[in-house]
């Protein structure tokens, strides 16, 4: 069976095509803000402008008659962006007369990670722009055991980068700067049980910048503090749930220092650390296609009536 998936919850509009065994293709049309961060309306206008061309481009490589079902990211995400994606998916489903399947974006990150790494029941650290969560399966459902009490880690990195005059996306720029950091500047470390918070860390880092500290040292101190917090809550969840496998997913998972810390943490508790290839960590259409395919094989389908967007869709609500 061949599934086509459309992702577009935030900045990246992406279509992926998969079958049960492999990713056949992925094509992206990312929205890159000219200045500042992601503006929901501008992002959705971008998606609306390029989605027709993106679909044509995909169909020039794989004929539409070969597609057996269409999946789309139903939420969580930016409302205006979600609506573009849902509209395109409904149109394809009706036009090609194939089933429609709404997919939870977070669930898709977890599923593609599990698929690519061949790991069955891990603790998942999901880190992206808007989301930062510790997820694991319990009682036949995914549950969130810990999460950010304010902003996502990617968002925090972007905010700091922008403050220091760097362009979106901030994460890779902060990572590059941090490599040349030499001095650790003290920053607030906020972990409450399995929850954590980043906004105080951003504010304190911005103050360091105002005080004239080197960008490199600030980036280094920020990464060390924020990633230590994430590694700590991941470890706590592994101990609490008595699970030995940790899976890292989400766009911020591309960061090498974060991966290194998690790997060391797992080694020291004789656990295993997994991360899918970088191109499948960030938002991509293949994860939506794969998760849609999996759900369809379990008999799920989304009627047009039920295909409304869910900007606040939580992974706990997903029926597995």
């Amino acid at each position: 069976m061949i599934a086509l998936g459309i992702e577009g919850t935030a900045w990246n509009l992406s279509i992926g095509v998969v079958d049960e065994n492999r990713v056949i293709l992925v094509e992206d049309r990312p929205y890159i803000p000219k200045e500042g961060g992601i503006h929901p309306r501008e992002a959705s206008q971008h998606h609306a402008e390029v989605i027709g061309e993106l679909i044509r481009s995909v169909f020039s490589k794989i004929p539409p008659q070969k597609i057996d079902l269409v999946a789309f990211s139903q939420g969580p995400g930016l409302g205006p962006c979600l609506r573009i994606v849902a509209t395109a998916a409904r149109a394809l489903s009706l036009k090609l007369n194939i089933p429609l399947i709404g997919v939870n974006h977070c669930h898709a990150h977890v599923e593609i990670g599990r698929w690519m790494c061949g790991v069955s029941d891990p603790v998942v650290l999901y880190v992206s722009g808007g989301n930062s969560q510790i997820i694991s399966k319990k009682g036949g459902r995914y549950r969130v055991f810990g999460e950010t009490l304010d902003i996502g880690i990617g968002n925090a990195l972007d905010k700091l980068a922008r403050y220091m005059g760097l362009q979106h996306p901030g994460g890779p720029k902060i990572e590059k700067l941090a490599k040349n950091g030499r001095k650790y500047l003290k920053l607030p470390y906020v972990v409450k049980g399995m929850d954590f918070s980043f906004s105080g860390l951003v504010t304190a880092s911005q103050k360091l910048y105002d005080r004239g500290e080197r960008k490199e040292d600030i980036a280094y101190s920020f990464q060390e503090t924020a990633f230590s917090m994430l590694a700590e809550v991941s470890e706590r969840a592994m101990a609490y749930l008595e699970k030995d496998d940790l899976l890292l997913v989400g766009g911020v998972g591309a960061n090498k220092r974060l991966k290194e810390m998690l790997k060391i943490m797992c080694e020291d508790r004789e656990g295993n650390f997994y991360a899918p290839p970088t191109e499948f960590m960030g938002d991509n259409g293949a994860m939506i296609a794969y998760t849609g395919l999996k759900l369809f094989l379990k008999g799920r389908e989304t009627s047009i009536d039920e295909s409304f967007v869910k900007p606040d869709y939580r992974i706990e609500e997903v029926e597995l």
Binding site: Y184, K186, Y189, E224, T225, S228, A231, E232, E260, M261, L262, I264, M265, D268
Partner: peptide
């Protein structure tokens, strides 16, 4: 001590 954390953070914590 947690090896994944730099000593400056780890010791104080």
């Amino acid at each position: 001590p947690k090896r994944y954390r730099i000593p400056e953070i780890d010791e104080e914590l």
